[in-house]
Design a protein around this nucleic acid. Structure first.
Length: 302
DNA sequence: GCGTGTCAAGTGAAA
DNA sequence: TTTCACTTGACACGC
């Protein structure tokens, strides 16, 4: 089991997601931003290894405007050595990596240009991981998309889009159950049609489900992962107390996390904590996992 | 320097 | 009809 947090480290004085406005695009700005972002990513990964946080979601903003037509620079070639070095560090230290293309990636949109833009964004994020030389267990997690008043048709469009994706992207793609439209059961149907593993989100499952108890839901999602996909990845969060339903908590509630762990029942998973204060929650969560014996107490201590 | 409106991109629920 | 939430932070303009 590995545990981690997404994208941003709030302890380190750097950001791996610096960007700039489209209006001020230039090759110089791009190179400067990416150079900065990769240097920061290196620091974050080192921090994570030092602290035993071995699961990390990389920012979608490592390369600003990577899939925008304005960007004709061959950044893949320019940054290949840096990305390869980062990849070697990841492999040497046994880190698990994911990326999460944002809400603009909608494979089942009825609008052809949106689907094409989504393909371009997936190609960008996949090429980052490919250039790092990571195996198939490094994943790109997306949601199914919109419903458009006809879910069976929307699911069919999603499956059709997956089937025309290049093999390297399809091999990394995983589907996350969401909290409004596509439940675990919907994702299982898509899995049946496409073979894409399901990344399980416990909080979304609490918001939208078809009655499956948590332990059963975890087992169903885990079954969709093949050996070379690695073990089940999951997002963990809980309700922000006193807030709108579906709002993520600002800080981990360890009693709820401890309760959630009882549903694993021996299942091995990698857990991404989607919690606002990042490593400030991931570190106490890791301490709990060590205390309970899920993670060796010596791992990652330096 | 600092406050703050706005930023490439989609969808659906709530206000 | 518009705003807001999604993982939401930070650029860049104006004072």
């Amino acid at each position: 089991m590995k545990i981690g947090y997404p994208c941003i480290n709030e302890t380190l004085p750097c950001s791996s997601a610096t960007t700039f406005r489209l209006a001020s695009y230039s090759e110089e700005r791009l190179i400067k931003a990416v150079t900065n972002n990769l240097a920061c990513l290196e620091q974050i990964l080192a921090f994570n290894v030092q602290h035993g946080l071995l699961f990390f979601r990389m920012s979608s903003d490592l390369v600003p405007f990577a899939s925008h037509p304005v960007n004709t620079f061959n950044w893949q070639e320019y940054f290949a050595p840096s990305l390869a070095a980062l990849g070697q560090f990841i492999k040497d230290n046994g880190l698990r990596i994911s990326m999460h293309p944002d809400q603009f990636v909608v494979l089942n949109s009825p609008t052809e240009t949106i689907v094409q833009n989504s393909f371009a964004e997936l190609a960008y994020q996949c090429s980052i991981i490919d250039l790092m030389g990571l195996d198939k267990s490094a994943k790109l997690q997306i949601h199914a998309g919109g419903v458009y008043g006809d879910k069976p048709m929307a699911i069919r469009r999603f499956a059709d889009a997956v089937h025309v994706l290049p093999e390297n992207i399809r091999a990394r793609l995983v589907l996350e159950n969401d909290d409004r439209s596509y439940s675990l059961q919907d994702c299982l149907e898509i899995h049946e049609r496409t073979g894409i593993p399901i990344l399980f989100d416990n909080f979304h499952h609490e918001c939208l489900h078809n009655g499956e108890p948590m332990a059963e839901a975890l087992r169903l999602a885990a079954q969709t992962w093949q050996p070379d996909d690695g073990i089940l990845m999951m997002d963990y969060s809980s309700q922000s107390p006193g807030d709108r339903k579906g709002k993520h908590t600002a800080h981990i509630q360890l009693d709820l996390f401890r309760e959630f762990l009882t549903h694993l029942q021996g299942l091995d998973v990698d857990i991404m904590l989607e919690i606002k204060d990042k490593e400030a929650s991931a570190l106490p969560a890791l301490a709990l996992l060590r205390e309970l014996g899920y993670v060796p107490s010596s791992a990652g201590v330096m």
